[in-house]
Design a protein around this nucleic acid. Structure first.
Lengths: 224, 224
DNA sequence: CCGTAAATGTCGTCG
DNA sequence: CGACGACGTTTACGG
């Protein structure tokens, strides 16, 4: 990895065109040739960048200037003019062992499947990832009367989730052996507009308490 | 901005939990206190990070180790254990003048508005950004028979765009002075599933050729 | 400050 | 390799 602190001007010509006036910035060149231009603020997103795979060509500009031309397969270009270099260092980091994550939605789905009575007393789980032609429904269950219930699990319930579940329900209800199929949107948090849309379509909204779902585990652990 | 090249272990405890085993990495601390952990690959996204506003507390760990505890308002934590420092430098960059962008969807919308006959001969533009209670429709037009046509412009047509246009159409069709309102999804590229969904709902799909739309300009430039 | 839509989104997974 | 959905999405824009 090469790090430069330098005054530079940057132009991106690709899916859009963008320009950065001259200013001191951090230029990061990674081992795979990708380039990041960072300012001393903002968030983790660089001001400008080129993702790998790409190639960097260094050439002389006017006077003491350097011109970097970074190009990718699609022909997108990042043009960096370096006016003054304040620091320039290179470091061999090696391949990173990588990030280990504990998911959220998958956990919620698993927990809700294990405690399907969170939907109400007498509910039974049919299966997780119930297949449909347009993708799997997170959970399929039966209510105490035996009516099919399709459950969409989200961390945050938003309009997208309602639309997604609506498409599943429309398809599932075409199956005379399954219909009628009710819908439940289950999430740790449900946005007001998503709730309005869901309830307008007869979809029940269920707010999940992650801690409580795990708490139920603990209680049962004590019982057995 | 402070840059460290260091062997470190990182844990994030927040919306999820994530762990990075010990390895040499770049640690970037920005002036606003935000912290980025970068490897020598991947894309512009750090392996781990904390967005501002947040606070960094440095304390001693076991032996020569250093422990950074980065905390934000929501109580999320980024814990960085620094085992060995290979380089440590600090640079004053000042406030960045910022990025100037030329958008894409806005350009497409403008071009299509200027060449509304791309929809078909005899089409007339009513207005861009036609207001509805849930937000503006990109373009409103009339077909040769005077029927209202709502157009949603995207760079890439995906299911979301179809849903968005569907919501607009549902609302617009409630207005007896406007109904019936037809729908058109116009994009440089339309995904197969979006096309199926759109056509199932009677929404026409129109693939836009950016170069050709500008080419039409050129031809007209030559004529006048 | 909340809510929605856009993003040079990026990233994983699965066909 | 393309399509599709999730993301610690982040970010910009409007009410």
């Amino acid at each position: 990895m090469r790090l430069l602190i330098a005054e530079c001007t940057v132009d991106y010509l690709g899916r859009l065109t963008a320009h950065l006036p001259a200013a001191p910035r951090l230029l990061m060149v990674k081992a795979d040739g990708s380039v990041l231009v960072h300012a001393d603020g903002g968030s983790y997103k660089p001001l400008n960048w080129m993702s790998p795979p790409c190639t960097l060509v260094e050439s002389g500009g006017d006077g003491d200037e350097l011109l970097w031309t970074v190009t990718n397969k699609a022909g997108e270009q990042l043009l960096i003019t370096i006016h003054q270099v304040f620091e320039d260092s290179t470091h061999a980091l090696g391949v990173d062992p990588g990030l280990v994550k504990d998911g959220v939605e998958a956990q919620l789905q698993k927990l809700l499947a294990e405690h399907i009575h969170t939907l109400g007393q007498g509910y039974r789980l049919v299966r997780r990832e119930y297949p449909t032609p347009i993708g799997p429904v997170d959970l399929m269950a039966r209510d105490p009367q035996g009516v099919a219930v399709a459950v969409e699990v989200k961390r945050r319930g938003e309009i997208d989730g309602v639309e997604q579940l609506t498409r599943y329900l429309e398809l599932l209800n075409r199956d005379p052996l399954l219909a009628p199929v009710h819908g439940v949107l289950a999430a740790q948090e449900i946005r007001p507009q998503a709730r309005v849309l869901a309830e307008d379509r007869g979809i029940r909204c269920l707010v999940l308490d992650y801690a409580q779902l795990r708490g139920i585990d603990n209680v049962e652990d004590r019982l057995f």
